[in-house]
Structures are given as structure tokens and as C-alpha cells.
Design a protein around this nucleic acid. Structure first.
Lengths: 187, 187
DNA sequence: GTCTATAGCTAGATAGAC
DNA sequence: GTCTATCTAGCTATAGAC
């Protein structure tokens, strides 16, 4: 077999950059080709299902990253709940590059693309909520409060990313992360 | 002059439905034509700047609606601040059809379209924040708290709309509105 | 596995009749 | 003011050489 000119991880990084910034409809195969360094036909060789397959791969890649970096930290029982919160939110900061990057869920959840990716998006959001709920319980919240706090955490992260983009001000994202941490610890 | 087959308001309603659900790149002229009942060439007669002009008109239309229905209520000094909050949030509920509709800011703020509409989007968000800050002051918040509360209100509305779509559950939006109201009154 | 070349289609936009 | 017909460019996707 001929060696891969571009590594899988590099391809996923390039595809991710385009889908997250332009959305599904806004991402053209030319964009995806330029960002990966592979010609269109080569992308189709790697992803026989075409653009849909590329976005699926990006969603899985990011969901896996979040599993390993964010959720693993939040659930790592070798640390105190307070430490878990801190390192988990630090991973969230990295995931969104301090507010510079959008969320892939947001980028792929306009009507037409939401139909294609609803399982991965709703699954990812549910896992997010369940994980933060678990952390809330470890911090002493009641089940009801922990669940509500988890929803609010997801809502605030998503909302702050939107407002950060709209006002072109990454301090909004950063302030929100700090506020989330304080609210978990303040109770 | 030949009479308009379709009224301006009906056109704006149709265009708005498409742009809000599909985003700028995802909205085709065929979509826009079908939704308004006007053929493509007729749309170009009404909007000489084409698709960009149509989205501009939708943004202005919605910004005006929000001015008249949401901000007017929030600032209406003939009522108590508590009443203003209640009726203002009720208008927000109508704006997003209880969580069924997306926000036009969100729909038009992917990278490529954000460049086209950044002034209207950032202007609209700033006005939102200033108006809620004014209400917070009327409710007795300190300037710092009122400003922070206003940011959080915008963030929560935007975030709850994203999560509502992702989980296909409009109770998330509704719960968020109720929570916003309670937090303004609880202090 | 990657490429050039191209198919087939739809996009946004325009010309000109009525 | 609205329409049919059409233009060009770009789109997603595929064929087949290397």
C-alpha cells in the first residue's frame, strides 16, 4: 500500500477547522481539500460517504476528545471534586481555544444538517449533562440541583460562545467559565 | 404601478423563516422563492442586492420587532419594573416561538456570514444587553451587577435555544425563561 | 493512496417579455 | 411588479491513470 500523504489526525484537524467555522452547508469540498492538503478525489477515497462522512468523522473525533480530556477529568476519582472541576473546565477552555473556536454541535445544528447529525449531537449533549450532574453530586448537590446545574452549565457554555462571536470579545467566554467554576464551589 | 402580489411583511416573514432555520449559506434562492411565493427574478426586483439584501432586510425587520415588542416593554416606565420584566420576557417567548424558532443572530453568525452582518449582530446584542441592564438598575441592582446580569440573560437565552434544538426539547427554553425571571426578582 | 479531468447538477444572478 | 428563460460559476461526486 502506498503510504498516506497526510495522517488521519491531520485530516481530522483540517476538516474540523472548516466545519466548525463554516458549518455544514457553508463548508465546500474545496475548503475541505485546501484545509487538509488532500485533493477532492483523495478525500472521497478516505471518506466514501463524502461530505456527510467527513462531518461524521469530525463529530466522532471531537466527541472522543471530549470523552478523554473533559469527561475523564471530571470523573477522575483520584482527585477531589474541586480539582476535577478545575481541570475539566481547563479542558473545555482548550476545546474552544479560549472562545476563539465555535462548538461543532452549534456548527452542525442548523435545520438541514441537524437532520443528518441529530443522534451524535443529542448524544453528546446528554453525555455532557450526565457528566456534570455526576460532578455536582460529588460536590454535594441534591440530584435535582445537580441535574439543573448541569443543564445550566451546558447552556452557559453554548450561549457564551455565541455571544463571544457576536460581540467579538473572548472575555465573555472566559468570564463564563470562571463564573461556572465559582457557582459550583459557592453553594 | 402594478400592485404587489405579495405584501412586504409576508415576504419578510417567509425570508425570515428560511434564514432562521437554514442559515445564510444553507438558504437557497429556491428556498426563499418557495417560502415567499415570489419567483427568483421578482425577489431580485424587491431586493436589488440579492441574497445579502434579503438577509439585511430580515435582520432589520427582526431588530425592529424586538425594539417595539421586547425593549419597549422592558423600558415602559408606565409599569413597575416587575411588570416590565414579565411582559418583556413574554415577548421573548413569542420571538422564539416558545423555543421552536432559532435566533437570527445565531443563524447568521457562522464565519462567512458573520463577516457580512457583524454590525447588525453586534449592534443588536449590545442593545439587548443595555436594555436588560437598564431594567436591572430599575430593579435595584448595582451597575456592576446589572451589567453582569444582562450579559448572563443574553447568554442564557442564546444557549438555551442551542440546547433546545440539540436535545429537541422546548421545555429547556421555557425553563430558562422562568429561571431568568426568578433570578431578577429573587435578589 | 493520490492525482487530473470531468460529469451532472444547482447555485446566485440577469435579460427582457408582459 | 412578476414572470420565463438563460447565463456562468461553483457545487458534490465519480472515472480512471499512475
Amino acid at each position: 500500500m502506498r503510504p498516506q500523504k497526510v495522517l488521519d489526525i491531520e485530516i481530522l484537524t483540517g476538516l474540523s477547522k472548516i466545519f466548525r467555522s463554516k458549518g455544514y452547508e457553508g463548508a465546500s469540498l474545496k475548503d475541505l481539500s485546501d484545509a487538509t492538503g488532500l485533493k477532492k478525489a483523495s478525500l472521497y477515497h478516505r471518506f466514501p460517504d463524502g461530505k456527510k462522512g467527513m462531518a461524521d468523522a469530525v463529530l466522532n473525533h471531537i466527541n472522543n476528545w471530549v470523552d478523554e480530556k473533559v469527561f475523564f477529568e471530571l470523573l477522575n476519582t483520584e482527585k477531589t471534586p474541586e480539582e476535577r472541576l478545575k481541570t475539566g473546565l481547563e479542558a473545555v477552555r482548550v476545546l474552544y481555544e479560549g472562545g476563539e473556536e465555535t462548538c461543532i454541535f452549534r456548527a452542525l445544528s442548523m435545520q438541514s444538517s441537524l437532520e443528518l447529525f441529530e443522534n451524535q449531537i443529542s448524544g453528546g449533549m446528554k453525555k455532557w449533562i450526565n457528566t456534570f450532574k455526576t460532578l455536582g453530586l460529588a460536590l454535594g448537590f441534591s440530584p435535582t440541583d445537580a441535574k439543573e446545574k448541569a443543564y445550566q452549565t451546558l447552556i452557559k457554555v453554548q450561549g457564551s460562545l455565541i455571544v463571544t462571536k457576536g460581540l467579538n470579545d473572548i472575555t465573555i467566554f472566559e468570564n463564563t467559565l470562571v463564573q461556572i467554576e465559582n457557582e459550583y464551589l459557592d453553594q
